[in-house]
């Protein structure tokens, strides 16, 4: 005989559902609480760690890099916000903002000379000069971090690699593959000739001249017709010998205007 559903049966089913739900909610709550607790502990620990090692983080570049990589592993970005407790705690946001401003300053000041491409090593040298010896040393890692923060400003701030050098770009110029290859080639002597480019890269006539003229128009290359062999040389101040470049940048930075 088939039983028809009765009131009590429905009530039992509803009660069971309720119980399941509340149990489930309980479990979820316990889990959340646990997570919250863990997070709080983690945060406390990290804060404590940061507070304890504040000076090390500010002073020692190696320590700073390790701290960053640790934060990155836990998915924490101490630079994400200037308002976060990191900034208050460490002033670490300020550190990179200050560095960023100085980098922008140097890039703009040296742009007339290098067309907006600056060797990263050169930049570091100039930063060190500007920040004076009393300040904490700046590593390549710090520069890269600061520049990556500048990227969000637009204006094309970016670090890219050409050959064995890293260049900081402060102009929105897009460099294509041809340009990069030429820059790489120019690192050897600081200059290239059309013939050199064509031979080294086995390009057909016209391609090299085209790319070189383009680089020149962008202010990245300068022509030199004065060599006794009569061949036009294209010089690249951004990959020029480090000494000349730094001196150039310094003279630009120290000029009164």
């Amino acid at each position: 005989m088939r039983r028809r559903p009765g009131i009590s049966g429905l009530q039992t089913a509803a009660a069971a559902r309720d119980q399941y739900r509340s149990l489930g909610e309980n479990v979820a709550k316990i889990r959340t609480d646990l997570m919250k607790e863990q997070l709080a502990t983690f945060r406390n620990q990290l804060e404590e760690f940061a507070r304890k090692h504040k000076n090390d983080i500010k002073k020692s570049p190696a320590f700073r890099a390790q701290f960053h990589s640790m934060c990155a592993k836990c998915g924490v970005d101490p630079l994400a916000s200037n308002k976060g407790f990191w900034a208050e705690l460490l002033g670490i946001g300020d550190f990179y903002y200050e560095l960023g401003v100085q980098i922008v300053d140097i890039c703009l000041a040296t742009r007339p000379h290098n067309g907006g491409l600056l060797d990263l090593e050169e930049l570091r040298g100039l930063l060190a000069k500007r920040r004076r010896a009393s300040r904490e040393p700046i590593t390549e890692d710090d520069c890269l971090r600061a520049v990556s923060k500048l990227k969000s400003l637009g204006g094309g701030f970016e670090v890219f690699t050409v050959g064995r050098r890293k260049l900081v770009r402060s102009v929105p110029t897009e460099l294509n593959r041809d340009h990069n290859l030429i820059l790489e080639l120019a690192q050897v002597h600081g200059y290239v000739t059309v013939q050199e480019v064509e031979n080294e890269l086995t390009w057909k006539a016209g391609r090299a001249l085209d790319a070189l003229e383009n680089l020149m128009r962008e202010g990245l290359a300068m022509v030199d017709d004065g060599h006794p062999d009569g061949k036009r040389r294209y010089w690249f101040p951004c990959v020029g010998s480090a000494a000349t470049g730094t001196e150039a940048a310094e003279s630009v930075l120290s000029s009164p205007n």
Partner: peptide
């Protein structure tokens, strides 16, 4: 100054800004 030893400064540059 630095540029006195950088050869392209001895050639008149065709690009206006430079």
């Amino acid at each position: 100054p630095y540029f006195y030893n950088y050869p392209p400064y001895f050639t008149l540059q065709p690009v206006r800004d430079t």
